[in-house]
Design a protein around this nucleic acid. Sequence first.
RNA 1: GCCGGAGUGGCGGAAUGGGUAGACGCAGUGGACUUAAAAUCCACUGGAUAGUUAUAUCCGUGCCGGUUCGAGUCCGGCCUCCGGCACCA
Length: 869
Amino acid sequence: MNGAPHIGAGFTFIRGDVYARFKRMQGFNVLFPQAFHATGEPIVGAVKRLEKGDKSQEQAFKIYGASEKNLKDFVKKGPKFVAKFWKKRWIEDLQATGLSIDWRRTFITTSMTPTYSRFVEWQYNTLKARGYVTQGTHPVVWCPKCRSPTGDHDRLEGVGESPTEYIIIKFKLTSGEMLPCATLRPETMYGATNIWIDPDVEYVRAEVNGEKWILSKTAVKKLKDQLKEIKIIDKVKGSELIGKACENPVTKTKIPVLPAKFCDTEIATGIVVSVPSHAPYDWIGLEELKADKAQQKKYNIEKIVRAVEPISIIATEGFGEHPAKEICEKLGIKTQKDADKLEKATESLYKKEFHTGTCKKNCGRYAGMKVSEIKEILVEDFTDEGIADKFWETTATVVCRCKTKCHIKILENQWFLKYSDPKWKEQTKKWIRKMKFYPEDARKQFDSTVDWLHDKACTRRSGLGTPLPWDKEWIVGTLSDSTIYMAYYTLAKTLNEKKGKIKAEQLTDEVFDYIFFGKGDAAKLAKSSRLDKKIIEELRNEFDYFYPVDMRTSGKDLVQNHLTFFIFHHIAMWDDQERWPRSIGVNGYVNVAGEKMSKSKGNFRPLRDLVKKYGADLVRINIVASNENMDDADWRDESVQTYNSRINYLFELASELKKAKGKGRKEGEGKTAQNRNIEMYMESRLQELIKSVTDSYEQMKFRSAAQSTLFGLTNELKAYIDRMGGVANCNKNILAQVVEAVIKLIAPLMPHIAEELWASMNKKSFVSIEKWPVAQVEKINKKIMQLEDTYKKTREDIKQVAKLAKADNHLCLYFATDEELEYFRASMENLKKLGFKKISVFKSTDPKAYDPQDKAERAKFGRPGIFIE
RNA sequence: GCCGGAGUGGCGGAAUGGGUAGACGCAGUGGACUUAAAAUCCACUGGAUAGUUAUAUCCGUGCCGGUUCGAGUCCGGCCUCCGGCACCA
């Protein structure tokens, strides 16, 4: 609720409306509701930015039509006012767009509607009691100054970066102190030849969970937030450690500490283990050190350096003994200062070795195994042996809006939804197999989302929302408080009507259990909650009548979160699968003329502006018919005109309808065989199209529905009128039947225009509540359709031939079947309009036929022979 | 990087239990009507060559390879774009 609807949101909502209207016409009692989600940070953040005079935030609100005065009010009256302000605008705009929403059921989440908050509390109490909510630790990107998690929107730098886990391998100096080396490739420890330390950096000695570690100062700060007991003892200069020996805990061999400049104290512990055979940085570092006699002499490590030799431990196809060496040579890397190239080399070698590499004989118990297969086991093994530990780091630098550099903090006491629960997952997956998805492609996405989903943090510390009932310091997260809100719609009408009379606290967990689960006794609950028994029963009945959700439709970005959670939570809350969701519709985003809509580009389209410019119906059909799969839809101003001209045609036709003479159906009575044929054809086509359009609506394929109706059916209508020689010669009953069907078939898409057309045909009812046409399949005459199609096609061919032959004297047609001969004879009047002086028709087998070029023998069913002279 | 989806004319996009690629619409070109314009109507419209007929031949669905009598569709390997990746909603 930090703006009014734009055409993108409009797309999703109009699709819902079209479907609701379609179902209503099919005779269903449709509950089509709309509520407003005002939880979390966005509005709070927007108001804060307004307070600071943020121009782009002002602009964002102004695009949707907020005035200067409104903006002042936003700051003065705060986030809840902003939410209510935009809620009002939303309702106005959606009404102007003709959305048939039951506004009696609207509400605004969560804390702004205390009864809804109560509903969230009931849900979480229930989930907790059933074991779906647990508490645990959780790494987050953390700003030490703000003392809060730093979401993407709170970042100056590092949008999209997330926590990643380094493995610390503890190398032991002879003094017993540990050199904790952080690595993403613990499997390479078998090839470690030395430790790198920056001689010019000041490290610290610290007591970490009872052990003595040497590490960078920054690392100490970070580890304090990662559940480590840590105390700094004193400082130690890097140079003091150079030349010392330590034990590789994996191989138990002794390796030396050597100097290098690429040890970044901002990353992990600031101490690096060197695997020159497989790490480009280490290879170059060692090469340079071996060449740098002065440096060796400075630290008195000549002998030690000479003894260091790369150890090859991974065999990878396409590489020899020392892959790091090869890749450095290939990319022309000569110095450790060539950071860009080194990063690239490291990345590509890592990938290659991880996916295709095999451990050589010198890799202990992992010898002969694939790198990709051992990684996880190895980390577990090392951790069990007490030689490894973890260090969380951001995937790249993250800077908070307050300009402070962020690191990873492991949050304790965070509440989680246990989406990892195998039983819950299995139930959800099973149900996904039974549900319907539009388009069908979406099913796979839901299925794989369930697969990778693991425990999800469901509470947060700040923003609008409902406090967790048993731990009020936390607020239920914005995704987690809106999983089963559809159930609340069934109550919302009654709760809104009785506003003030029903207090949130009267809706106890037991009352909700009764309403939603049918558990308990209404009379007893009435007593304990002091609610009217009738009201309790009314709420129960409303829920019982409407539930489950038959259709939920939303944007594709919500598949991997909201929409999947929606399925999960219904399964967790209701034992009875009769209450579980039946189908989900998914649509793409909306581009404007092929480009992403953006406030700064100037191609931003608030729904209100478009409706003002084009009227609701043209906006509706222009966006809804622009696309019907999960790809992005496209708003194009110029295509509005196309629909407009079709509508004009329908209005003209409706007004001309009375000119039709309305002849009877039987031959004789002034009706020719030709007319009877064409009428049968028109009726067949109509029924066929009713069937396919209904199927399209059913599957939310509104583009196909609009196309078949507005272009397919009206094209047939035009052809019919043309073939009959104008409206006046048409059968009034047939014409009216087709036009009425067209109006009904477009009614869900263009409700206002449909009503207007309906009225112009002297109908007294509303078409929006008329019966949806049901295809009369028995009226579809395949033979006639085939013959008429042959006729149309042949007529085109004749024109083509006449053009190439440059002749119009004598047209001869040869037919393979009597049916065709008959049909064409009946259509002679129409055929004559082609302008030939003489027309002859023959059976192809007729020996007496005039056939100078032997065209008769080439005639096939559906393809008569043509000769023109 | 990981998971999922997609890539077809000038454009939006049809067609996938393998079987005539380009339905329908837009734009474009030519013509009719009009003093003119708009609107409307008719014809053409992936590329190339040939043609007194209804066509014929070849090339064409992101790239490379494969399976098959036959591949937009299936398989393997890439490239590009979109969505999600968890304290943004």
